[in-house]
Amino acid sequence: MSESSVPVRRHPLHVSGTLDPGVSRWLWLVKWLLAIPHYIVLLFLWIAFFVLTVVAFFAILFTGRYPRGIFDFNVGVLRWSWRVTFYAYGVLGTDRYPPFSLSADVDYPARLDVDYPQHLSRGLVLVKWWLLAIPHYLLVSAFTTGSYRMSTRMDWASGGATDGGQWADGGQWMAQGGTPSLLSLLVLFAAIALLFTGGYPRGIFDFVLGLHRWGLRVVAYATLMTDHYPPFRLDQGGPDPDAPATAQPPGPTV
């Protein structure tokens, strides 16, 4: 079989974002206030996410299947969190207010979906969320936490090393002293550029999307949604390179 005929295994989690060309110079200064209703709702959604993931753990352990209703709800929580992250201080990529919805919205500039797994390994469920994912926890923590401690709802997955809390809180961190993370610095530079030039540097946007994409793949793996091991790869840019052609966002990305 030739190399070109070997099927490419795409990652089942698809994360994309379209940078709005007219992002406001100043609105980011008050987005912390505007996003408060979302943060409150997401707090309760992530509590439910945690409980349902524990239920899914036992379902996978005994049946090899992730209950479809729980899966769809948990994907919805990730989707909602990604929209808030994209709107607020995780990216600052749009001024369009995120919808209060777990459902997919192809018209919103931030999109997330996860392919439903027909079967999951009953053995891997015992080790992938803590042992196998440790290398990714270390790498992702390096660019998302710096010497800040995240407010997290998902420390159960890694004994405190996972980055799931970042997306649970829409990209927010609780400063405990020290230096900010690489991700927060990049978004800060973008905010300053918006304030003084009215433009979001495209290189920063692409890099920030790549960091989030990597982190969310790890979250999906650690929360048992897939057996597909996250690649050690920074897929930069707004469109997800692993998304099906029909799932790519319409129109320009700049």
Rank of each mutant, 00 (worst) to 15 (best):
S2D: 15
E3V: 11
E3C: 00
S4R: 11
S4G: 00
V6A: 12
V8R: 13
L13R: 01
L13M: 13
L13S: 13
H14W: 13
H14Q: 11
G17R: 02
G17W: 03
T18D: 08
L19H: 01
D20H: 05
G22W: 04
S24F: 03
S24T: 02
R25Y: 01
R25T: 02
R25Q: 13
R25N: 07
W28E: 06
W28G: 06
W28V: 10
V30F: 14
L34V: 14
Y39E: 08
Y39H: 12
A48T: 12
V54Q: 13
F58E: 09
A59L: 05
Y66N: 00
P67G: 04
P67M: 09
P67S: 08
I70P: 00
F71C: 03
D72Y: 09
V77N: 04
L78S: 01
R79Y: 04
W82P: 00
W82N: 04
T85P: 00
T85L: 14
A88K: 03
A88Y: 08
Y89T: 08
G90Q: 09
V91E: 06
L92M: 13
R96A: 13
R96N: 07
R96Y: 02
Y97I: 12
P98T: 12
P98N: 11
P99G: 08
P109N: 06
R111M: 08
L112V: 06
D113V: 03
V114L: 14
Y116V: 07
P117G: 10
P117W: 05
Q118L: 15
L120M: 11
G123T: 12
L124W: 14
V125W: 05
V125H: 04
L126S: 02
W129T: 11
W130Q: 08
L132H: 04
A133I: 15
I134A: 10
Y137D: 09
L138P: 00
T145A: 12
G146I: 06
S147V: 04
Y148C: 05
M150C: 09
M150E: 14
R153L: 15
M154Y: 04
D155S: 12
A157D: 10
G159F: 04
G159K: 11
T162G: 15
G164Q: 10
A168C: 07
W173C: 07
G178K: 03
T179G: 07
S181G: 15
L182I: 13
L183F: 04
L185K: 13
L185Q: 14
L186E: 05
F189D: 09
A190Q: 05
A191T: 06
I192L: 15
A193N: 11
F196V: 15
F196L: 13
G199R: 14
G203Y: 06
G203D: 12
I204W: 07
D206K: 11
D206C: 04
F207Q: 10
L211F: 03
H212W: 15
R213C: 02
L216I: 15
L216R: 00
R217S: 01
V219N: 12
Y221S: 01
A222L: 12
A222T: 14
D227E: 02
Y229T: 10
P230C: 03
D235C: 05
G237H: 04
G238Q: 08
P241D: 00
P241V: 00
P244D: 01
A245D: 14
T246N: 10
T246R: 12
Q248Y: 01
P250I: 06
G251D: 13
P252N: 05
V254G: 10
